[in-house]
Each structure stands twice: as C-alpha cells, then as structure tokens.
Design a protein around this nucleic acid. Structure first.
Lengths: 202, 202
DNA sequence: AGATCCTGAATGGCGATTCATTCCCATACA
DNA sequence: TGTATGGGAATGAATCGCCATTCAGGATCT
C-alpha cells in the first residue's frame, strides 16, 4: 500500500550485525567464517554481501554504529556531574558497565578491532577519538578550574587512563569467570589512582 | 614452541628471527608472508621450516626469546634501586628505552602478538606475567614498607600501570614521527601519576 | 661416497566472494 | 477474482586467489 517497507530490510541487517558480534567475539575476526555469521543470522552467505561490502566492512560498521550509541550514553552519564574529579570516576564506572552488560560487543571492540591492521594503521578511528576526547576535555576543565595539576598533558593523561581501564577490562574479559578481581573494584581503584595522581594539591 | 633444534647450525636462525621481526612489524602477522621473511633473511622459504614448526611458532619463539632478554635487562635496571616509588619510575623509563631502541621488536610484542588469538586465549604468556610480576612485587614491597597505600590491590595496580604504559607506547609507535608527545615525557608523567596515586599519605 | 643442509617450485586447503538462479510479492490487467 | 509480469531480495553452490607448507632433488661439506 503506502510506503511501508515491504521486506524486513532492517531486520536482516540487524540480525547479521548481532550474529557477527557474537561470532567475532567467539572465534576472533580472522577465524570467524562468513558462513558462520550467515548461519547464525539465519541468512544465506551471499545475503551478507547485500548489506556489507565485505567481512572487514562488517567489523568497521559494528565499530561505527556501536560507538555512536556508547558515546551518546557516556555523554548522558557525565552531563549531570559537575566535579571533574567525580567525572573521572563516572567514566570508569560507565566503561565497565558496558563491558559487563555487553561482553561480546566489548570483546569485539577491545580485542578484535585491534587485530585489524587497517583499523589501527590506515583507518582513522574517529569515534574512538571522540570517546576519549570526552575524557581529555574533563581533564582540561579540571585544569581550568584549578582542581587538576596544570603540569599534566591532557593528551598523555587521556591515553594513560584509557590504557589502564582498557587493559583491566581486557584481562577481565579474557579471564572470564576466573578473573582475580571485580570490575567495580578495578574501576574504583583506577579512578582513585588517577584522581589522587593528577589533582592539584595546595 | 621450539623444543630442541634438530641439527642445523649457523647464523641462519638468527637471520630468520631478525627478518621476521622486521616483516611482522611492517606488514602485521597475518599479512606477513613467509616468502617475505625468507627473502629478507636471504634464505629459501623451506629453510624457515628447518628451524621453526610454522609461522606462528616463529612469532611465539620471538616472544619467548626476546622476553627473556628484556626481563634480565629490567632486573638489572631495578636491582640497584632501593626505593619502591623510584623503581616505578625506573620501570617506565626502562620500558620506553626498549620501545625507542628496538621499535620493530616493540611493535611486534605490543601490537602483533595481540592479534594471535592463540597467544591471548590458549597460550599462557608466562613471560609476560614474569615481566609484570616484577612490577607487582615492587608494589607489594612498597606496601610492606608502608610507603604505598595498603588498600591497593597489587594485581589491579599492575595491570593498570602496564595498560597505561603500553597504550602510550602503542600510540607513539603508531603515530611514528607525528606523535604528539615525547616518550620520556610520557614515562615521567605516567610514573608520576601512579606514584602520587598509590603512595601512602600521612 | 655419505651426510648434512638447503632450495624453491608444486601442492593443497581454506574460506571470502561471486553470480546464475529462485523466490516473493506488488501491481496491472482481463 | 484469477493470472501475468517485472524486478528487487535472497540464496548457496561454485569459483578463485592466496599463501603456508611440503618434499624431491641439489649443493656443500668431510
């Protein structure tokens, strides 16, 4: 009749993306077979190529689209918090709440994306910069307000903090149930170290 | 893993390892072709299989052998330093001196090893644990002496510190000459953040 | 000669990608 | 109402390129 979508167009695309996240997390990008993804999504192998240029495009699409959601969510979390030091704390907690809630996605973003040379060397991970940029901005704000040491380079602090958070998240994911620490505990300790480490002292 | 060399002698093994480090760093493990490594080492493709079981064994052998050297070097660096907080500083500087001096090796260890699922999930990176364990021990010593906060989990501090150091090292390597910071500056700032962050306060 | 070491072309397997074919259904027409 | 038709969507078997690995000979020593 009207302009109603005749076919479940978006549905298949969504299913392929979800299946890809699961399979990438499970087998790793390189070992993941397109056939596996197609099977899991309940579509034919060729169907995937109607929606994505190739296997790598599928990985990058997941990154692009999911990061948009994550960035929006992070912004919403930080918005009501005024104190920069408190925001650092919130950043860590927010990061891990995602890791815990969507472990497969987190695994793809943290572990698998890094094996894509294209991603690391050729492709500009704009979305990652945007995500981290929010943190760097928190540091700059804190410096302007005088609560964070002025001799710290926000750029270095940003990568250091992300590295710390990311590494612990990765170890937690890799260790699965055997993890020797709790994510929340890690979030608190790391945030605490950085807050103590960079705050301006009288 | 390399059991015992069946027979072959000479400097070929060494040349293959050096060539592999260069090619892995340059093209990435997956895109690196055995042919490229052989060519660079000045040997025939098949020769590589006289010294290594397969391509992955080559990667793991590089890890095993180089880590032994790195661990020994780190121990020698820390030995004459008594103050745990000063050792943290030395750890960061030592790590980056390696990154700067042997960039290709650092790239392989930091970036490429991570793409080997086998390495991260199945293989136990004992040597990495040994390396990091040295740092965890520094934290424990500091706690016993009362100069480091007792409420910090050495395990979490260890991963956080390594993550921070590692991430900055990776960004520096990836950015090559365009890096927006100096390695030494990063070493000092990160060490400073952690020292300020974990030291016991009166 | 025999043993050791090396060579590099040939092989084989894997799995991403393609594309000829089929399916589905909205619309048009009788 | 029944049937034809056009074309986009989906299929999945076949293709095809890539490259790690092998191995039947050579080369080089003793």
């Amino acid at each position: 009749m009207t302009q109603a979508d005749p076919a479940p167009r978006g549905d298949k695309r969504e299913r392929i993306i979800d299946a890809a996240i699961a399979v990438f997390a499970d087998r790793g990008f390189h070992k993941a077979r397109v056939t596996d993804i197609a099977h899991r999504a309940g579509v034919a192998d060729g169907t995937i190529y109607l929606y994505f240029r190739n296997k790598e495009d599928l990985l990058l699409t997941i990154f692009e689209e999911k990061m948009d959601l994550i960035i929006a969510s992070l912004k919403a979390t930080l918005a009501p918090i005024d104190d920069p030091l408190e925001r650092i704390h919130a950043f860590a907690l927010h990061h891990y709440s995602l890791v815990r809630r969507e472990r497969a996605l987190a695994e793809v973003l943290q572990v698998e994306l890094r094996l894509s040379n294209r991603f690391l060397k050729e492709y500009r991970p704009e979305k990652l910069w945007k995500y981290l940029g929010l943190f760097a901005q928190v540091v700059r704000d804190g410096q302007e307000r005088g609560v964070i040491r002025a001799d710290m380079d926000p750029f270095i602090v940003m990568w250091a903090f992300f590295g710390a958070i990311d590494e612990l998240g990765m170890q937690w994911i890799l260790a699965r149930k055997k993890a020797r620490f709790k994510l929340d505990q890690a979030a608190h300790q790391v945030a605490d170290i950085f807050i103590q480490g960079i705050q301006a002292r009288p």
